[in-house]
Design a protein around this nucleic acid. Structure first.
Lengths: 147, 147
DNA sequence: TCCTTTACTTGAATCATTCAAGTTTGCTGC
DNA sequence: GCAGCAAACTTGAATGATTCAAGTAAAGGA
């Protein structure tokens, strides 16, 4: 299905701004709101930043976009939704990279004890240095991850 | 070792404010900065909010506190550091609950492909509803976690 | 006890994000 | 194809957690 169809299916109206958002986010790499706004304006002319925020929220609620919010850095968005993947985030430059779950359908992501919580999602973020930033700082070989 | 000793070991000066922060965070349950500030003032009288922010950062850098930053909610702190535990966060009330890693020393937290990243930490947050909020909203039985 | 460095105070600034009110536009029904 | 309504968009302002800056106070080694 195309973006317009997906929008309708989510009960959202099809507008130039929203199609441009889908294209921009889909063509980019975990873009932040500012970058999305720039991309949208390049495609369809002036669109207000607030419209971008509003649409991003609507698209996320509708399941067309996934929101990524690494601690201490602005929100980013991606079009890869509904699957089982996590993110590597660079501490130095903020770059975000997709990484598949180590165990397929995330059995280890169900907490041993859920303490009575009704769990509906598990967010996993790996923190580290991306290859370019590693080269810059001359970091040693990888250690293992600790939780 | 007591808090004063831990502070010195981290190369930090021992002050009434910092000891009060350690006590407050240790005695509380994943408190946010405002709550920590209140607790500190109760213990040692007026301390500026900025001093609390500054000390929390210093204590975190020194490894005496762990910072928890669930997406979309203010930063929280805890004294349980250096072990392998994750967090359950309630979508409704924001409550944070500790949960041990399902697999001991987090083998599944090493990404399949680290894409060349030098990974040093993995953050895992489970999102859901805590028991009281579940009761309020009359939610059904738990689903399994998806990543 | 002195001196240097670190911690703290007060006050202002930042920045992502949200709220509010009014206007425009997509789209359903006629 | 047109009317009407709700959703989307615009402009402008507000919010709130966090940080920055400059000056004062106090910890702790010499």
């Amino acid at each position: 299905m195309d973006d317009a169809g997906r929008l309708r299916q989510a009960g959202l109206r099809v507008t130039a701004a929203r199609l441009a958002i889908m294209q921009t986010v889909g063509g980019g790499d975990h873009l932040d709101v500012e970058a999305i706004h720039r991309g949208v304006c390049e495609r369809v002319g002036q669109v207000s930043l607030q419209a971008v925020y509003d649409s991003l929220n609507a698209l996320q609620r509708g399941g067309l976009l996934r929101r990524i919010e690494p601690a201490g850095s602005p929100t980013r968005y991606e079009t890869r939704v509904g699957d089982n993947h996590h993110h590597l985030v660079c501490r130095s430059c903020g770059r975000v990279t997709d990484v598949d779950c180590a165990v397929g359908h995330a059995p280890c992501l169900e907490p041993v004890s859920d303490s009575g919580y009704l769990v509906d999602e598990a967010d996993v973020i790996y923190w580290g240095l991306c290859p370019p930033c590693r080269a810059e700082t001359g970091s040693a070989q990888p250690e293992s991850a600790r939780a």
